[in-house]
Design a protein around this nucleic acid. Structure first.
Lengths: 345, 345
DNA sequence: CTGAAAGCGCTTACAG
DNA sequence: CTGAAAGCGCTTACAG
């Protein structure tokens, strides 16, 4: 049997209420009593039963994070781990625990979320990157559960969310290449049902338009967030009569696929093709050659998401806090983009 | 206000006890009553309060996993993510939730574990890879909390744990190189206070001895699980008058460091130096050239750890189940080791 | 097969 | 500053 509040009360010669007040740092307890009770707690090795506390206080001091379907997007491992590190670190600092959950399908995700939130096991949820028309968002919104989205929702723009300015980030990436004198710039995108793919595509297009550069359908390839997509895109581009000289690539892993393909065909980076990609995962720095990449502050995304969620849980009702948080991005230039094409006569 | 067991009872015209029995699939409830109650639950959108249930049943149906100190070993990201995926998948299948916690120091880890276990928020804990003389292991053991170690403890060999046979794995890796005709085989190890480093070192040494090959102190370098360690080891080896022709490397990330250094110095892999490393992370396959690596079944380690822990929670007292689980390893041969050295005359 | 009652370990008005 | 009492939402012997 573990020691309860009653045991402490008895041994300290006070009532359970008093022990409870000491626990919650209630000010109206005399210094001596408080100290005596604390001593007894120490002596008995007392730890408050979190479940009992949560039952009466109607708050669990924990949040859950929902992983996307496990098999798919496995490759984003490094991305998610970094995000989770940020989330867990900040949550623990605020005294919250973090529960990880993953569903095999969107329906299973909803069931899990519903069990956790309706069953009062957690106070809120963090959703990692949303698809278009995400059912889970819809469910959480309809039930008025506190939650934060890492990414953004087109259907519900007023939702609590943490995101990068992906349009601007892609714009900046393209701009970097333009400033090096490139004229024909290609883009390797991700799945079109991911909002992030489309945001980045938009930034790329805007940069080209603003610089008065030619846009061509054949210079844009859509794929998955997978190495193979990069490989395929590369082989498509290199067979064009007029091929792009640099590529903006939606994710570092995809860049690795491009790199691999180029290596096999005997092309050189950056001389034959420049590359700038996104996320600045460790693989971008570790690859040969190192890849220029847009750092989007993944840890920061997680940290901020957790902070925003916990804030909204603790101040429910007061609606005056910020709804949309934008994490800054920063281009890390490496060997893969350090080349200016020869000037046309 | 959310709907409780009482609301359901009233609406269904039964007692709360009966509703509770329906919930737990108690057999002694008539089919009609059961169905009626279920209908009402559905209609009212009832979800049992997990905290209340846990308070009386003295079981939480959740486990926690303790991440090692966050900053250090950040690079092992991919390793941990894969492990966590395995853990979460299996736990969810068994109806358990998973709570993630991380401490800044060993002392903080103990406090976190103690709060969670003594506070009855979780039923057991998973420890990810142990150091020598791990205090957390000691704490859990002394308090008789259910836990499982991913790795092994030298001090407490009888503890519930999931591990690879790292000695055998390293032996097999070295054997692969020996079978290609290599005579001078080097080893790049990890931190000596990690049991896994020493296990792998031992396997390497044994393979050399068995094959009657020369062992030299200068062919063994210890470092961190970091790319830089590989870089440094490489530059050390390449400056030896008699340098090794292949290297067994303790981790894929370290291999990348070796590869990077060789590339910069103009050496070729596998012609100038062969490499076999461990863990078979995605970076091993993605690097240039792809690196031969010992797959240790990371997902499987996590899955099995969760399974063993939950089993031991559910069958506490009965001590007849298996204490030590060994996950099989498998060498994945890639370009980095596909070269036999020229035969001596 | 079902219900009334006690209790899990806390917190929190209410009273003094 | 402190205590007695009620209650959070469940489960589980006990009784019928």
């Amino acid at each position: 049997m573990s020691v309860t509040i009653k045991d402490v009360a008895k041994k300290a010669g006070v009532s359970p209420s008093t022990v409870s007040r000491v626990l919650s740092n209630n000010t109206r307890i005399s210094r001596e009593t408080s100290q005596r009770v604390r001593d007894v707690m120490e002596e008995l090795g007392y730890h408050p039963n979190i479940m009992a506390k949560s039952l009466v206080s109607r708050t669990t001091e924990s949040i859950c994070v929902i992983l996307p379907k496990p098999a798919e997007e496995l490759f984003l491992n490094m991305f998610f781990m970094e995000l989770i590190r940020g989330i867990v670190t900040q949550a623990n600092r605020s005294g919250y625990d973090v529960l990880i959950s993953s569903g095999g399908s969107e329906q299973e995700e909803i069931e899990a979320v519903s069990r956790l939130l309706k069953g009062k096991r957690v106070d809120g949820a963090i959703l990692l990157y949303s698809r278009k028309d995400d059912q889970v968002v819809e469910f959480l919104k309809n039930n008025q559960f506190p939650f934060v989205l890492v990414g953004r929702s087109e259907k519900f723009p007023d939702i609590l969310s943490v995101d990068n300015d992906n349009v601007q980030a892609a714009y900046d990436a393209a701009k970097h290449l333009i400033s090096l004198g490139h004229q024909r710039i290609g883009f390797v995108s991700g799945p079109p049902n991911h909002i992030v793919s489309r945001d980045r595509m938009k930034g790329y297009v805007t940069a080209l338009e603003e610089a008065g550069l030619e846009k061509r359908k054949e210079w844009i390839v859509e794929g998955e967030f997978l190495q193979e997509s990069g490989y395929r895109a590369m082989s498509f581009f290199m067979n064009l009569p007029e091929r792009p000289t640099p590529l903006v690539v939606v994710d570092d892993l995809v860049s690795l696929g491009v790199l691999r393909g180029l290596y096999e065909l005997g092309y050189k980076v950056p001389e034959d093709l420049c590359i700038v990609s996104f996320n600045n995962l460790s693989i971008a720095e570790l690859s040969t050659p190192p890849v220029s990449s847009m750092d989007i502050g993944i840890y920061n995304l997680g940290y901020t998401a957790s902070q925003a969620l916990i804030q909204s849980i603790q101040h429910e009702g007061e609606r005056q806090f910020q709804k949309r948080h934008i994490i800054p991005h920063r281009l890390v230039i490496r060997e893969s983009s350090l080349y200016s094409p020869p000037k046309k006569p």
